[in-house]
Every structure is written in structure tokens, then in C-alpha cells.
Amino acid sequence: MSTLHKDAVGVLESWHAPDAGQDELRREYLAHLAAHSDGMEKLCKAGHLTGSVLILDAERQHVLLTLHAKLKLWLQTGGHCEPADTSLSGAALREGTEESGIRGLDLLVPGPVNLDRHLVPCAWHLDVQYAAVAPPGAVESISDESLALRWFTFDEVAELPDRSVRTLVARTRALL
């Protein structure tokens, strides 16, 4: 069992879910990891854990979303864990940095903010979602995984079609 797999189990075992639905997902993620030693890896066709991060500006008034190149939706940054990742939060922050170009992201809280399971072309993603704050003066730069990057107000996010992004933003706002 990899260090990343052990970290994910520890994160999920210690996480206090905000409601019964999130707690059920937490238990399902743990059962998946118990059944699949490769459950953190993209090659696990039964599904795999991913790490994502909602990036807040330093003033905590806007969130940075990426127009995903393949899915054509405005989403938080994130994606697959890599073999060099040793923690789930580290994987989420790495993905956030790669996709936003912003260095020095700082987690809003140490643990996840939300869990979201969704089907994408490669398999089920069991996404563990974090929130992070960008340093003052941070300037984003687009990656090849994105068609665009944009700072949204909380009210603008409420108008987006993707339920998972709206939920993640609402749960993050509750922590502010």
C-alpha cells in the first residue's frame, strides 16, 4: 500500500463530514480504497480518488475556475494523483498550481471541504475537494488542460450549471 493510499485512508477516516450524504460518500470512498489497492491510480478502472482545489483570491471574495478543455465546463482545478504524490491535499495543491499557474496556495482548512463522485470518460472520479487561498497579488496563467481561467464572484458561481461546483463553493463560503 502506497504512502498516498495510506494518507487518503487517514484523511477520510478522520474527516467530519458536514451532513449524512457526505458521510455516506466518505464511507463509500473508504470501502473503495479497502477493495482496491490501486484505488488512487488513474489505471484503476473501477474508479479512483482524485484531488481538486477551489482557489480563493487573497481577499476571499472571488474563486478561480477553469474552463475544462475536455468537459467544456467551468470547474475548480484538480485531477489525478501522480506516483510522486505523498498526500491527497498535496496532490490537490499540485494540480491547482499546475492548472492555475499560481504558486504559494495555502489551504483554507487542513481537511477536505466536500466529496463529489462523478463519471468522466476514463472512469468514476471519487473527488476529494479542498479550498485554498492564493497569495496577495497572485496572477493566474492558463495551462494546456484549460480553455480559459476566470475569477468569479460567489453570486456568479450560483448561476453556473454544474451542481458540484455550486456545492463546493457553498461549503467553502460556510467556512469563511
Rank of each mutant, 00 (worst) to 15 (best):
E13I: 11
L43K: 15
L4N: 01
A138T: 07
H16G: 12
G79C: 01
G104D: 09
S164N: 08
L25R: 14
V53F: 01
G78K: 00
P161Q: 05
F152L: 06
G51M: 02
L107M: 05
G104C: 08
E156Q: 12
S37H: 13
H32L: 10
I55F: 01
L30V: 06
C44R: 06
S52G: 15
E95P: 01
S89W: 06
A158Q: 13
Q129S: 12
L149F: 04
L71W: 06
C122I: 14
S2K: 08
K42L: 09
L71N: 12
W15F: 08
L25C: 07
Q76G: 10
L175I: 11
Q22T: 04
A17V: 04
A92V: 00
A123R: 12
A20K: 13
A123H: 11
P161T: 04
L107A: 01
G137E: 05
S52I: 00
E145S: 14
T77M: 15
A138C: 09
T153H: 09
E82R: 15
T153K: 09
S89H: 10
M1E: 14
R166K: 10
A132W: 00
A123F: 03
L65I: 03
T97M: 12
L56D: 00
L160N: 09
A91L: 11
V133Y: 02
G96I: 02
P112Y: 03
A92D: 02
Q129Y: 07
S100H: 00
A34G: 12
V157E: 02
K6G: 13
P121Q: 04
I102E: 04
V139A: 15
K45H: 13
V53R: 01
A158T: 12
L119E: 10
P83A: 06
A138L: 07
V113L: 03
K72F: 14
W15C: 05
S89V: 09
Q129R: 15
A148N: 03
P161L: 02
D162T: 15
A92G: 04
E98I: 08
H36V: 01
E13Y: 04
P112A: 15
R103S: 15
W151R: 10
L168D: 00
G10S: 03
A58M: 05
V11I: 09
W124G: 03
Q61K: 15
S87I: 00
T3P: 08
L12Q: 06
P135S: 06
E28Y: 10
Y29D: 06
E82C: 13
L56N: 00
P110H: 04
A174Q: 11
K45I: 09
L49Q: 08
T77D: 07
S164F: 00
Q22H: 05
S89T: 11
Q22W: 05
L108H: 05
I142A: 06
K42M: 09
T66L: 15
W151H: 10
R163K: 15
V139K: 14
E13L: 12
L71R: 13
R117T: 11
E24W: 08
A8S: 09
L64V: 02
G79S: 02
L73G: 06
I55N: 02
L115I: 01
K45T: 14
D162A: 15
P136I: 06
H68V: 02
H118D: 05
Q22K: 05
T153W: 08
V139D: 10
M40R: 13
R163H: 14
D162R: 14
L43I: 14
Y29F: 11
Q129V: 13
D23K: 07
P83E: 08
L149R: 00
T172G: 00
